[in-house]
Nucleic acid binder design. Structure first.
Lengths: 211, 211, 211, 211
DNA sequence: GATGAATGAGGGTTCATTCAT
DNA sequence: AATGAATGAACCCTCATTCAT
């Protein structure tokens, strides 16, 4: 008899969460495009489809918004950590390849390089925030990777080197690639991320497994 | 009759060059500290020991100053390229170690990570400039490195892989280290750059030289 | 079957009046503390124990709220006038003392100086409102006082002066005291209101009764 | 041969002082008209004939501007004090009349009521500032007046009352008049300031000199 | 050439008011 | 009726740039 609302209005808490996500997404994009200083709150609000004042209902200041962006980006990082940890019992070389696959996937996700750039550009300006990222994402991630490599060394399948440094060396090409893609543009960077990381996996494992 | 200036004033062109260098140094420092958006022309002028208006005698706008900073940083990069090129005829493995040594030196120089950060943070804002850096520094540098590795492959001492990708993989840990040091702070980054790069050289060559 | 509300809800009109009074009280306090411009509707609503939107059910705008505050303060003033008028037949000197006693009481009431301050600070912004106060409170009040003094002059017990000016001179110390207390704070104003007004009554009557 | 500049440009320090005075004058006027909260920096700058940014060269914030206004208004007050002090040796009753004459003059000056209103309206918001005014102007002024009255009491020409309260009572009508003129407007206040203060002087002295 | 006072466009933030729930 | 999330106009303040000295 009566027309159903085609899209039922989301419940209040759902609406709130959806808007917060929309704001964070818009903010990440615009911070990356124009830098923190160059980003205008009004543009972020427009991109999120809300009024300028509404943004302040969700984030008390531009700075708090930056913090929110960084914190939100920590979640996929944590997911990666758990995903690696669950496989940590496997063959170390295979786990290393899994890690590289995850890095390839992350690079394909447009968020990663964008976030990397924001973190680099603004990390110094928001030390608590970058410290949170370091402690909650980078260090646990490096930790589980170091564990995997350490086990490979114990088992005698990897050459004996400092597992902490090895963990960093495993991630370094992904970090460098993310940055290069952002700074020079995907088209101009001059390499294909998947090939780079595949080659890296081969070379890294070859080195690690050589006498 | 008239007192001579005890320190004879530098000749005009010399003074001009000295001031320009002072401004560029101050600008690099302050761009790195506060970002392009957060840097104030007046602070840069103060740090360079000149008046705000005087800065405009040397650089026509804030943007031109950023371009100047990026261009000035190209010089040491070019020097590195030449230095590598002159050794390019040597034993490829030895040249790889020389390259890593240069990277270690660059990381010890406080300018490098600072410049890396500025390039990352502001590169998007000045695309012609970052393109210049890419074309005049990064690509030639990667080119000479690829040549060295390519010769190693030809000689049969390195495993056959894409020399361009290998060149990027050789530099990646230095790039990642520079970024980490800037973002998280030397004290908090959690690794020692020299050890990281030494380990990298070992592992990279081991991989490259393994079957 | 259903629990009765332990405290029966007040009748609708009574609730309305009570809320209006609560809002006006909160508004007077906050206007005095922070000025009209500095007062936030939300803070007034909070102080009145209602939601921000609810305030607009009772007052259509911030400006209407200011008018309401001034109008509400007219009532005690009118009460004072009537109280004086009923005594107006008495001995003029005694009535003058009664008036001063009422002024002392008003100063002891924390509302008076607060209202005085709001009227001074915001009167210009709401000229119709301050005009209402002048016409409905100040002028009738000065009128009955002038009548009392006029009668004293007619009876030959007061020296012949303009009764209108005398009425203003009788109230001036109370006005000045209210303002000083508000501006400098009760602790720092440097005088005790009761003593000031007692001394004033003595001096004023001594002058009025001298040849 | 060449046209002389008709108005020679003022020297730098003179220009600076002139602009500061222009800003303070404009600010006093506009603070009085619209209140501190209602006053817009841009309007004050316009009224002072300068750009909005220029105002910030002279005063670091809106609040500092308010402080400047109050401080500037202290000067004529201090002048009044000195003028009274130099006459303090005279016949006390004559000095009292001199004080009332000065008050009449002050009321004729349009600045006084305007400033009084600003002080009342914003004093609470800028306690340091109103405290400065109280300590540097009001208290010294009341002090010299109390001295004069105290000497009259010692000489037996004034009735023995608390000289501090008497000093306040002497000034109260001027304060009340200033406020009334500002709040209700000169036309609507309903009295003529000079007559009010003349009558006050008569009545006050009559009271003070009566047994 | 060197300087810094002057400028005004621009942007972060606040808050009175509205309106869907 | 009551609420508070949403809104955008308005305002303080900053800072790149200009220009008179």
């Amino acid at each position: 008899m009566f027309a159903e609302a085609v899209v039922p209005p989301p419940s209040r808490p759902a609406q709130r969460a959806a808007r917060e996500a929309a704001i964070l997404g818009a903010a990440l994009r615009i911070f990356a495009e124009r830098g923190y200083g160059g980003a205008r709150i009004e543009d972020i609000a427009d991109a999120a489809g809300i009024g300028k004042g509404t943004l302040y209902v969700y984030f008390s200041s531009k700075r708090a918004l930056l913090e929110g962006v960084v914190r939100a980006a920590a979640d996929p990082g944590l997911a990666a950590i758990e995903s690696i940890a669950t496989q940590a019992e496997g063959e170390p070389a295979a786990v290393v390849r899994v890690i590289v696959e995850r890095a390839k996937r992350a690079l394909r996700n447009e968020i990663t390089p964008v976030f990397a750039k924001v973190l680099v550009a603004e990390g110094g300006r928001a030390p608590e925030v970058s410290a949170v990222y370091r402690k909650e994402v980078m260090e646990p991630l490096l930790g589980v990777i170091a564990d995997v490599i350490g086990r490979g060394i114990e088992r005698g399948v990897f050459r004996p080197i400092d597992p902490n440094l090895a963990a960093r060396l495993l991630l370094a090409p992904a970090m460098a690639a993310a940055i290069s893609l952002e700074v020079f543009g995907v088209g101009d960077a001059g390499f294909e991320p998947d090939s780079l990381l595949d080659t890296h996996a081969d070379l890294f494992l070859a080195g690690l497994q050589s006498v």
